[in-house]
């Protein structure tokens, strides 16, 4: 057992991946609390797809992966906002059009223009390619996320729960919405290397969906989802190393298995409770 855990730590690339993966996992877990409660899983899905387009265009022009990803999320955000404002169109349609179009552009460019980055690594994540910059980006986003959460926790929760009344009580709900989208974009960009663009959407949903089955308080949900994100990321990276699968699927599969276990466990516990209640009434 010790060998399974300690042997990969002898490789600097795995240690870097583990550090970046832990930060990204915790970030996705914390973000998932807001994503799940706002029922906005499609935004993570959409922005992650848009990132690939930005990365493709950026790499074709010799820019860094993160520059392209950042530009793509900003462009996607502005276009989604513009399209969804047109009467008769809603945000889901706008996200479906804008982000998949940018994604398609990225795939097309990466297929035509030779780059040093593998398309598979971008789609599914990799533990081999995590460098100091990836670690710095994940660390920077984690610090910024924590700072924003500490400073704006109350208005963020109020806006998530009841935006109309929050506005009456003086919360700048428009700013809180923008802040939420900014945080989502930052987490998505920071997660690309470890999770891959196709699997980020699951990582920003599964932790809070699992925690939701166990806890009833927002603050506890946030902490448990963050912990679950962190734990599944670490376990998933070990799975990725030992089974030689890309890191994104490794992390998401561990998370999905955890969700399935908690789902089944809570269902059984609920039935047992019902049976006990019926037996008590029958006595």
């Amino acid at each position: 057992m010790n060998e399974v855990l300690l042997e990969p730590l002898g490789y600097p690339f795995f240690v870097r991946a583990l550090l970046a993966g832990s930060l990204v996992g915790a970030l996705c877990g914390a973000l998932s609390t807001f994503v799940v409660l706002r029922r906005m899983s499609y935004i993570g899905h959409g922005l992650a797809h848009a990132v690939l387009g930005g990365v493709g265009v950026g790499l074709a022009f010799g820019a860094d992966l993160y520059v392209g990803a950042l530009v793509a999320t900003i462009v996607a955000g502005v276009l989604i906002d513009r399209v969804s404002r047109r009467e008769g169109l809603h945000a889901d349609a706008a996200i479906g059009i804008v982000t998949t179009a940018i994604f398609a552009a990225g795939v097309a460019i990466l297929a035509v223009v030779p780059t040093r980055v593998s398309l598979e690594a971008l789609l599914f994540g990799t533990i081999l390619g995590v460098d100091r910059l990836d670690l710095a980006v994940a660390g920077g986003v984690a610090v910024a996320f924590a700072a924003v959460l500490l400073a704006r926790y109350r208005p963020l929760v109020f806006t998530t729960f009841d935006p109309e009344v929050a506005a009456v009580h003086g919360v700048r709900t428009g700013r809180m919405e923008a802040l939420f989208h900014l945080l989502t974009a930052a987490v998505v960009v920071a997660s690309v290397r470890v999770l891959g663009v196709l699997l980020i959407a699951a990582a920003v949903v599964i932790p809070a969906a699992t925690a939701r089955l166990l806890v009833r308080s927002f603050g506890v949900l946030l902490v448990v989802a963050t912990g679950l994100g962190l734990a599944t990321s670490i376990l998933g990276l070990y799975v990725s190393y030992h089974l030689d699968v890309p890191s994104g699927p490794g992390i998401v599969l561990v998370g999905a298995l955890g969700f399935a276990g908690v789902f089944a466990g809570t269902a059984v516990a609920g039935r047992l409770g019902l049976r006990r209640a019926r037996a008590a009434l029958a006595r």
Binding site: L37, F161, R216, S217
Partner: peptide, 9 residues
């Protein structure tokens, strides 16, 4: 207008 499943006391 409110999500009564929201995890708040």
């Amino acid at each position: 207008q409110v999500d009564w499943d929201f995890p708040l006391t």
